[in-house]
Write a protein that binds this DNA or RNA. Sequence first.
DNA 1: CATGAATGAGAATTCATTCAT
DNA 2: GATGAATGAATTCTCATTCAT
Lengths: 209, 209, 209, 209
Amino acid sequence: MASAEIAYLPVGKREQTKVQNRLAILDAAREVFGELGYEQATVRDIIRRTGLAAGTFYNYYRSKEEVFAALADDGARRFAPILKALRGKGIGFDGFVREAIVAYFEFMADEHNTWAARRPEGEPQVHIQGETPEMAAVFAEVKDAIEDAIAEGRGPAADTEYMAAACIAIAREVCDRMLARRPIDTATAAEFAVQMILNGIKGLPRTTI
Amino acid sequence: MASAEIAYLPVGKREQTKVQNRLAILDAAREVFGELGYEQATVRDIIRRTGLAAGTFYNYYRSKEEVFAALADDGARRFAPILKALRGKGIGFDGFVREAIVAYFEFMADEHNTWAARRPEGEPQVHIQGETPEMAAVFAEVKDAIEDAIAEGRGPAADTEYMAAACIAIAREVCDRMLARRPIDTATAAEFAVQMILNGIKGLPRTTI
Amino acid sequence: MASAEIAYLPVGKREQTKVQNRLAILDAAREVFGELGYEQATVRDIIRRTGLAAGTFYNYYRSKEEVFAALADDGARRFAPILKALRGKGIGFDGFVREAIVAYFEFMADEHNTWAARRPEGEPQVHIQGETPEMAAVFAEVKDAIEDAIAEGRGPAADTEYMAAACIAIAREVCDRMLARRPIDTATAAEFAVQMILNGIKGLPRTTI
Amino acid sequence: MASAEIAYLPVGKREQTKVQNRLAILDAAREVFGELGYEQATVRDIIRRTGLAAGTFYNYYRSKEEVFAALADDGARRFAPILKALRGKGIGFDGFVREAIVAYFEFMADEHNTWAARRPEGEPQVHIQGETPEMAAVFAEVKDAIEDAIAEGRGPAADTEYMAAACIAIAREVCDRMLARRPIDTATAAEFAVQMILNGIKGLPRTTI
DNA sequence: CATGAATGAGAATTCATTCAT
DNA sequence: GATGAATGAATTCTCATTCAT
């Protein structure tokens, strides 16, 4: 009976396949980008891996760029809430940074393939510029946390944009290296990043922004 | 024979055009990469801009990748001496970092004007890390220098790969933000990056890699 | 049953939507053909404009050609009575030609406003003769009428196919030019066409086809 | 010896193949348009018929529209000089019209396939709108001839644009019908068109343009 | 060495149409 | 009868590269 289907999530075969297809495309794209690198990858490759018809791809995304952005967005979308939750926990700034970094590193170790695209040869790396809404959200979340810390006197009143940028940069870059090593040791890498960030921030000269 | 030609300025016509063509290709490539981005750029685009015949391109470079590398070489060639001089100056690690960062930021601010990348305001944008071959080359040089400094004991013996990665990440990211602001203030941005890096590194726990 | 429904205005919901959909499709097609031209127009375009589901289109028409024909039918349906009335009026061949031409020119001037074809200023343009399905239909109607008139002896017995073709050609071409001028002066243009046709026909040598 | 090749026309194998290819494409296009009709025809079809590589087509024309225009242009280009020559002959206006029509009809009977595209079913006919330079030239030539005739008092001072349009329309349309008949009788058809035009023009009312 | 047209594989994309819901 | 996603053949077009001149 239909009444039993009190709609938790996409019910109906139609909605179901739609979700499945979208996921199939994202998964295929993840793999293809990982194996071929962003530049080498073609929409064709993604479609092939997908098993779907060529036209179907275009019902979901309009270009390679769009899937790529969706992939990045997807990661950010799932990470932002984690960050938000952390801030509510009443741990200090140091605690926030530590837990955020750990969460991020573990999250990434989990995702792995999504981001650690094995770039063939020395091809120039590629990253998102237009910063999707969700990536901007992560950045904003970090910046807010830093500003809060400053407001509460637990951090130096330096340029918060630079600070947030530097923190995210450290985390991302160290994380990348970590993912390239075997075995993947999140604890050590996270500790490194945390120290680098906290010490780095502490010695900052006051500035007017 | 060749020695005789050193005096005369119009060297053998053959050699002259060869140099001219090579330069024409590099210049065209610079422009094209700047305007279209590495991924979008095609050999065709470069050839078109060059004014030369299609076949001529292949007498000098065998692919887009090769021109890109040549361009990077060029950038490295110009920045490497600066760095090398720095290393010879007998300034400590701190001094080295400071001067390297300042040099890098100024170099980038300079390049930035040269490469007025007019990207079309398209949908989700994607771009090359380091933006241009020259920038990528500079990036690599800085990384090498830092690793050398650490290897020579002029820096703390933490995980050098992570360290280099983190330093570079900070420099690059802060530099990017700096370039996006008006006016471009290299002094303040450089000072921020230097502090962040030096303080960050200082508190690092020693590790053996 | 059906007779009972004549009184009520909201006829059976089914029939109502059916009529509405059919009209929606015809309207959309009219617009699309007007804007894109017959060749460029696709079923997709029509469907999009319609707001209906893709499948629904196929419940009414089986192809672009079929909608086009339906549209032409529509035009013919509106113009045919005018022509028929003319034939019944007992005016001579001259009168018939004059009134037909005037009616045609006025009809076209009217349609012209309706179909504000905003063609993109592309490269070498190509367009449908008669511009729109309705116009094509009118054209065909006029041709038939002239041939009938000749067949009934109300016109000179020259080569009727050539005659009809020539008359139509004059009417169409002069009409086209008229529509391109500002202000649109149907009276003068019609008079020109009428004179050209009648005088032209008068001097024709009799032929047997 | 190269000296023997005092360059009358494209010498050199390169130029030769270029001309050959361009002609091959035009010929293929002529056939394809003739067999399939303009709308049904695809660039692919033309390429196939051509035997050339796909890319080669695009070295010559950028689209179906462009080849079509080139085809029309080609016809006009070859016909315009004939018209010009006629005007220099000092025959009267009537003579000019007669000879022009005859020349045109014979020219077309010769070309035949170029213009008499067998339209499949009742598909709407198609003709050039952007009027290529050469088609405009033919029109202008006719209009000039008419204006000359008027200036010399050998024709009524009516609207010359309408007159030229009407004359060309008659010629084209009658010619089309002629080409559809078997046997093709240019003499009779030409005579019909000439009478229609000359008589038609004679009775025209004076107008201020 | 320069030239530049030819090549043809293959990428991106569209479209008419079907059919399960 | 409406819906709209899936299909996949077909089309347009580009591109790197070659090679005769």
